[in-house]
Design a protein around this nucleic acid. Structure first.
Lengths: 325, 325
DNA sequence: GCCCCGATGTTACATCTGTAATATTTATCT
DNA sequence: AGATAAATATTACAGATGTAACATCGGGGC
């Protein structure tokens, strides 16, 4: 566990250049998004290339420096939110429209989840976070306020062979945004054997992080399905076990634990080796947000909801429709 | 004075078609702004023409259904805000970047002013509003909440020969957004003679509106300069008097009253015929926002600030720079 | 019933935008 | 100083976007 202070955004800029670049960024943001000037106009106004303007605009969009708020609720979605709340006894549900094949659902869900998360952050709060693409999108949509009294901890171990995504990225980013402390469950998500799990837990700060996690006020998690697209499935450890997991009735994972259609942890050796708090412990956390969508994830999401592991849900139309069938 | 209920947005839609069109609008908003789909993709997804998507996107942008928030403060502007606050003893100042020749300053200032206004609205509040292009832009940037206990009244009479802009539009729109009552100063801004002014005031609901105005909690106004671009200057009544007004030392108007560089009402017959509350009465309203910008308006704005007629200011860089000279 | 109006579709085109491949500058490290 | 990496400029181009002119459709008012 380390203290994270402020290593989030476009960092490696030195002295004068950094200020200048930030200044240009801010000006571009205003001229383009508020003023509606054309990229070429901005370029000549600022004496830089259109290309640079173009790139900066792209950055601004994705790094959350400009945020677009849509004030037109989609009636269908609102209806589904209510029905989901009632059907699964949830405290809050947000359904966003599904985007066709292209513009990926993950991002839109993540952004909506970020808003829900932001609304629940308060000073002194302890937040337990998982990882995954959806969650990392949420990070761009948080307003960076200072909550130095708060703390963040990662709910689950990391991947050793990082496939592009740093698995602690979400926790780091959140702690950075909040200016709060961050505790890592610095271990692989799957340890070699059940014994080594016990060994690790007794060791190090892992025990402390786990203790902290159990006293968290809010959990922010996603879940994975069984398709080869899933981040978790791509890890070697899981790939080796995928067939036996399927045979055991697994429909997907929550915090690395594979669940059956009813949300029960399936009987499989892999589930003995997970370095993360258990779904049952997750359910004991006072408040929690599950962010997952896409029709193909509906089976896992349904499993998680049926078992009552989480209190709030952010998903998309396609998944919501499946959940309501 | 009339009750305004809800006649703001894209109104003249009948029964089924209206719902359908709104539904399409909402979907387009999500697909385009949240999902980042291309207009063509959206068109085929929804089975409509790309053109229609294109037009709708344009509407969404300008009617405030989607709102873009920029989270990068421009250091220059922030500095000027502080200096203006100190120099003119203001409670709050907002300075937005000036847009080059194109993308008009009015809109950006208006939008910022809308945000400041929104922040100050509370249930039961009485808001006195003026009119002008800048203010009408502010209306698109208000979140429509319900403040049925609030009321809105127009601060000044209207133009009889409407040059495109309905002068009560701002009051109507604001009342509509708030779902509150709206009182109009239903008279021309310049009445024929000083006597007819007294006559009108004694008559009708005008007296009541004026009484209300004086008990308003918040005023939302703009001011005009002496250039031919100014809405007010374009009215025939003023055009006839422009030379004598200049000779009397006028640098612009506030609520139809022409002021000198120190903010004093200039000695001119036209100022006897204004149907509006006086600047002095405006100063007595507990809280007030002046939204005006552009370098060419600096003289009037300075006059208004010097005389202390308003408490808060929203302007742009160019004007702010002049004000600080 | 007929006409007019507004909303939408059709087509065509100029412009703006996103992206890649490549050169040049600038900062940083040894 | 020289080498290296990052940022920025240059050029080129396909695809997306905004706009205009005109056709078509459906409803409401006379």
């Amino acid at each position: 566990m380390r203290r994270v202070t402020r290593d989030i955004p476009q960092s490696p800029r030195s002295s004068a250049a950094g200020d200048d670049a930030d200044y240009i960024r801010a000006r571009i943001a205003w001229y383009y998004f508020a003023g509606g000037l054309t990229q070429q106009e901005i370029a000549s106004l600022l004496g830089i290339t259109r290309l640079r303007v173009n790139k900066t605009v792209g950055q601004l969009r994705s790094d959350g420096s400009v945020r677009i708020e849509i004030r037109l609720p989609l009636s269908d979605c609102v209806v589904m939110e209510e029905r989901l709340k009632e059907r699964y006894g949830l405290a809050e549900v947000r359904v966003v429209p599904s985007m066709g094949e292209n513009g990926d659902a993950q991002r839109v869900i993540g952004e909506a989840a970020g808003e829900m998360l932001e609304a629940r952050i308060r000073d002194g709060i302890g937040v337990a976070v998982g990882w995954g693409r959806t969650l990392s999108f949420a990070m761009t949509h948080l307003r960076a306020r200072d909550f130095s009294g708060a703390w963040v901890a990662s709910l689950m171990g990391g991947l050793t062979r990082g496939s592009g995504t740093n698995t602690f990225e979400v926790a780091t980013a959140l702690a950075g945004q909040l200016g709060s402390d961050c505790y890592y469950l610095a271990a692989p998500i799957y340890v070699p054997t059940a014994q080594s799990r016990d060994l690790l837990v007794s060791h190090h700060g892992l025990a402390e992080t786990l203790r902290r996690l159990r006293s968290a006020d809010l959990a922010f998690v996603s879940c994975g399905d069984m398709s080869p697209l899933s981040l978790l499935i791509q890890t070697q450890t899981v790939t080796e076990n995928i067939q036996t997991l399927r045979d055991a009735g697994a429909v997907g994972d929550l915090l690395g634990y594979f669940l059956d259609a009813e949300g029960r942890i399936v009987d499989h050796p892999l589930n003995e080796r997970v370095m993360a708090i258990s779904p049952r412990e997750l359910a004991a956390i006072p408040d929690s947000i599950l962010a997952s969508g896409g029709a193909y994830k509906a089976p896992v999401v349904r499993a998680v909801l049926r078992a009552g592991y989480v209190k709030r849900l952010v998903t998309d139309e396609a998944c919501a429709a499946e959940l309501l069938k």
